[in-house]
């Protein structure tokens, strides 16, 4: 018995328990999407500048102006409408193709099971939020993604669809008049396209914050695919399972 025990522990010492978190395809889609979406947002900004009329105001007081002069100047935005359009209408294809492949893969591989919110997700997402804000200690159990992630990553899929649809409504409002109609008209489509873009930027900021907060083991899984299960986590996993 004693011999066996020592053998086991030495094996454990040389072995790592890992979970295959992100399949290779999803890692590719993720890392292609990041620069492509960045180019889309940047080129979209160059286009938006030419008629930058949106703002949030209460009464006659402007709270946020999209965007202030200094912001444009810092990013070298002014007078690049043509450049913005040429990049936007080329990279849009990459964004669409990558998006379609990602969704198709998620459906056919069964990964959607870990991604779509279920009947517990909305309650759990609230608990996750309270936990993340250090209000509550309790953290609901999770599979690949927690409930808040499920909702966020499913929302981002619908946001992508919305961007493509509203994009086509702006791009060809006569030929795709039914898409423009679905969006509530040409002007509405332009507003929606803009709001969704602001949404990506906010998503990105929260995403980066969470990734940094969660740490290296989680981050490297989107590169290597593997996440190491630490011994103490293993125990709690067994308990929960």
């Amino acid at each position: 018995m004693g011999l066996l025990n020592s053998f086991n522990s030495s094996t454990n010492f040389r072995m790592k328990k890992v979970i295959k978190k992100h399949p290779l395809a999803i890692r590719w889609f993720h890392w292609i999407n990041f620069p492509v979406l960045t180019v889309m947002i940047w080129s979209g900004l160059l286009i938006y500048w030419a008629n930058s009329v949106y703002k949030i105001s209460v009464g006659n007081t402007t709270i946020i102006k999209f965007f202030p002069k200094g912001f444009y100047k810092a990013l070298n935005v002014p007078f690049h409408l043509a450049k913005g359009m040429s990049f936007h209408f080329a990279f849009a294809w990459l964004f669409i193709i990558n998006g379609i492949l990602y969704v198709a893969y998620t459906i056919f591989s069964g990964e959607w099971r870990y991604l779509l919110p279920n009947k517990y997700s909305f309650k759990e997402a609230w608990q996750v939020l309270l936990h993340d804000l250090h209000i509550k200690k309790y953290q609901p159990p999770q599979l690949k993604y927690n409930a808040a992630q499920r909702i966020a990553y499913t929302a981002i899929f619908f946001m992508g669809m919305g961007s493509v649809l509203s994009g086509f409504a702006i791009y060809k409002p006569v030929q795709f008049s039914w898409v423009a109609f679905l969006c509530g008209g040409y002007e509405a489509a332009r507003v929606e396209h803009f709001i969704l873009t602001i949404g990506y930027v906010l998503f990105f900021l929260i995403h980066i914050f969470q990734v940094i907060k969660t740490g290296w083991n989680n981050f490297q899984a989107i590169i290597s695919g593997l996440e190491v299960i630490k011994p103490e986590k293993q125990i709690s996993t067994n308990e929960q399972a």
Binding site: R14, K16, V18, I19, L143, L226, A241
Partner: peptide, 27 residues
């Protein structure tokens, strides 16, 4: 799919050296 299944299906034990090799390769 139960929680148990997810971890069972996707968890495996690999040696430290093969883990390190995999890491270097992916990065």
């Amino acid at each position: 799919m139960s929680r148990h299944n997810f971890f069972d299906k996707r968890t495996k034990e690999i040696s430290n050296s093969s883990y390190r090799r995999k890491m270097i390769f992916s990065f």
